[in-house]
């Protein structure tokens, strides 16, 4: 009976969604806003190859700021919610092969993560993806060596410093009169090189470090509440 009711609700929802599908005829050209972003004078004003990065960091930079804040709040609530109980745990020993492979792979994974966020304005990727890759490296280390102590202080300091520098860079643009989160506070450079697009690589690197530290904190929190089993 209840399932029938749910089914009727879903049918109603589907019939509400159907007009969206029905009136969608595919796009033949960009929306006006995106056409503005893709004009060649605006492209050369930002000077970043990756237009998605340009939108994320400069035009819609406030969204990114809010998003980093949400992630920070989620991490803080999880840390507050899951009290660390230092119980004694006995785990089965990891295979030696896996330990060696982890030792070898963790620096490479971190290097790839750093590559992804430093090249955020040239290739796909950026702060969030790079941060996620770095967090994966940290979790691989934690999986291979369960007894290794996770350096809370370092990650929290890294997170705070990156957040402060990010907001500071954003505010610096406003102070010198260019606008909040403007990337022209550093020289724009030549299109398509590593040192181009003004402050975008710097800002994205700090976003990446911050996201990586936050995700590592969340994952470590989930790991440290595993009880004896």
């Amino acid at each position: 009976m209840k399932k029938l009711f749910v089914f009727i609700i879903l049918i109603a929802l589907a019939s509400m969604l159907y007009p969206l599908l029905d009136t969608f005829h595919g796009n033949d050209k960009l929306s006006e806003l995106s056409q503005f972003y893709a004009q060649s004078e605006n492209v050369s004003k930002v000077n970043a190859q990756n237009l998605v990065t340009a939108v994320v960091v400069t035009y819609r930079g406030l969204d990114t700021l809010g998003e980093v804040t949400i992630l920070f709040l989620a991490a803080a609530i999880i840390a507050f919610f899951l009290k660390t109980e230092s119980e004694k745990r006995t785990l089965r020993k990891n295979s030696e092969i896996f330990k060696t492979a982890a030792k070898m792979l963790v620096p490479i994974i971190t290097m790839v993560g750093i590559y992804i966020f430093i090249n955020g304005h040239l290739t796909p990727g950026g702060g969030f993806q790079g941060g996620a890759v770095i967090a994966s490296g940290v979790i691989l280390m934690l999986l291979a060596f369960p007894n290794m102590e996770f350096n809370h202080k370092f990650f929290e300091a890294l997170e705070s410093i990156s957040g402060v520098v990010y907001v500071g860079l954003a505010a610096f643009g406003a102070i010198i009169g260019l606008g909040f989160l403007d990337n022209a506070i550093l020289p724009l450079g030549k299109f398509g090189e590593l040192f181009s697009a003004g402050a975008i690589p710097v800002i994205y690197s700090f976003v990446g470090l911050k996201v990586g530290a936050e995700l590592s904190n969340i994952l470590n929190k989930f790991k440290s509440v595993q009880a004896e089993n």
Partner: peptide
């Protein structure tokens, strides 16, 4: 490609890890 990379790293990597810890 940006969205694809994010989904590969987060949607099928990290969220699976969190699910298994829980």
């Amino acid at each position: 490609p940006d969205v694809a990379m994010t989904e590969a790293a987060i949607g099928s990597g990290l969220s699976t890890i969190i699910f298994f810890y829980v």
